[in-house]
Design a protein around this nucleic acid. Sequence first.
DNA 1: ATACAGGACTAAT
DNA 2: ATTAGTCCTGTA
Length: 283
Amino acid sequence: MQILEVAEGVILSRPDSFNMNQIITSGQCFRWDEIKTNVWKGVAFDTLLEIELLDDNSYLFKCTKETFYSLWYDYFDFERDYEQIKRSVSGDSFLEKAVVVGDGIRILRQDPFEMLITFIISQCSNIPKIKTNVNILCQKLGAYVEDKHGKDGYYLFPTPKALAENPELIASCGVGYRDKYIVNAARKVLTGELNLDHLRTVSREEAFDALISLYGVGRKVANCVLLFGLQHLDGFPIDLWIKKVLDKHYQGLFDTSRYNGYRGVIQQYMFYYGRTLGASYFE
DNA sequence: ATACAGGACTAAT
DNA sequence: ATTAGTCCTGTA
């Protein structure tokens, strides 16, 4: 991948395996928006970023090269070779199509606490509603960051402390019955009973067990946290869409051993393609 | 209106 | 091991 430094920021020159639209509609993140055609804005950790798709299909990251390399390079998982992953599905006709349709998907390396709370909120919900809930949560309980011009500020995702200490505010964010799950999880993280940074370093099985021990966290949510927040790339969340795909194309039995080490990436291609096919396709 | 949406819990088999 | 009923709430 060719990376150029220019006055306005950093340019990814006509990148393979990078498509903002695919990435932010693949259900892994909820704080990015296309604010106008081909311009996206999002917050990750404590930083705001704008990305623009230029006429020549290059992407402009509007940040310093220092910030690009210290934060966004890791966040967008640029070190990983997605071309190689896509080639590895050769011979599987469904996945061969999936990696063409979702050729620019990447697994974002997001904040584990944000993933835990966000995917607790996601249960039995839908993307627009999840985004609304998370945005309200950030506005009510997250720190406000002024940008250097005193306008266009933004809210950070709430800290464990903020969530643990304000149960009544959480209940007013429209998260419904999930409010108690959120408060409980935040308290466990705040006290150190659940150490998310530690879970990054242990086996996927051990991290999984620690996550599902939380009240209101089951297999699906735990796998999402593993995959999107803890870099356990073998997390394989099975949700509605994955179920549909597995039932229709794999007789419900999908052998993931072929993709050991990056099964979650395969899941993401599968999920994205399944959604583009639509529910009627699976009837 | 009543069912449903990117689950999980609990209490029953 | 599997299954039904329940949990909030916005949307259609």
